[in-house]
């Protein structure tokens, strides 16, 4: 069971009407990798992420997480797989009717196994992890700043101690200091828990600080995937254009 890659996409095609987003796309992410998914605007990065989450079914091809096909009809298997991953949405996607505390406690309560004291401690632990104070737990999502929304969303994504963390633009909207902290936080979590992380990002600093591997999405498929320094040297107009003069900084 451990040998199967955490994420496995094979022959994925996505079409919206007559528009083709992905065509015969393959990607395999092994456990413990931190993969940065790069691609131009509109190249279908978020769509790909949604397919990995099972929110969107590809027109053709297969998506497997932890070796389980996301089309598996067994609801229990589906639920177990989803409990093993955490997702940070681009705009947080916090439940606006619940306070910060309840947002983070929500997935824990849904397990129906933990007592309230345990949940309270865990929530405060997660809040501390993302550098929020106990008092912030009472706030409603509408009262938070953009950066705080992101950190609460990360805390919620981490609540179930996922093995796979999917991040959509995790550091967009954070100041450089905070995004550096974020990078350190995810890095240390990765070390401690052996997380697998897949992130969509445009921020070169985040990429440089965090990613071990880079996947480049262009021309409707993954044109390059491998360790960061190898991908950097790929001779493709998108890759050279993206890294441009910053190529040295990343190495």
């Amino acid at each position: 069971m451990n040998e199967s890659p955490v994420i496995e996409l094979s022959g994925v095609c996505t079409r919206f009407g007559s528009q083709t987003i992905h065509c015969d796309l393959d990607l395999q992410v092994a456990a413990g990798q931190i993969v940065g998914l790069l691609g131009g605007s509109g190249s279908g990065k978020t769509t790909l992420l949604r397919e990995m989450l099972g929110l969107l079914r590809p027109s053709a091809g297969r998506v497997r997480l932890f070796g389980v096909d996301l089309d598996d009809p067994d609801l229990l298997i589906q639920r177990t797989v989803r409990r093993r991953l955490g997702m940070l949405f681009q705009h947080g996607a916090l439940f606006s009717a619940l306070s910060v505390f309840d947002n983070i406690a929500f997935p824990l309560r849904e397990l129906r196994c933990l007592d309230e004291d345990w949940i309270r401690r865990l929530v405060h632990l997660k809040l501390a992890m993302v550098e929020l104070e106990t008092a912030h737990g009472k706030l409603m999502p509408a009262e938070l700043s953009g950066g705080m929304v992101k950190r609460v969303a990360l805390a919620r994504a981490l609540a179930l101690e996922p093995e796979l963390l999917l991040l959509d633009e995790p550091t967009a909207g954070l100041d450089p200091d905070r995004s550096q902290n974020f990078v350190e936080l995810v890095g240390s979590l990765q070390q401690a828990l052996g997380l697998t992380v897949l992130m969509v990002t445009h921020d070169l600093n985040t990429l440089a600080g965090l990613a071990t591997h880079v996947a480049v999405l262009a021309e409707q498929r993954i044109i390059a995937f491998g360790p960061k320094d190898q991908v950097m040297t790929v001779d493709h107009p998108f890759v050279t254009g993206f890294f441009g003069a910053d190529r040295r900084k990343l190495l």
């Binding site: 345990w118 401690r121 865990l122 632990l125 997660k126 992890m129 101690e161 401690a192 828990l193």
Partner: peptide, 8 residues
């Protein structure tokens, strides 16, 4: 492995 839930 030890995660924070277990730590708590």
């Amino acid at each position: 492995r030890l995660d924070s839930a277990a730590a708590v």
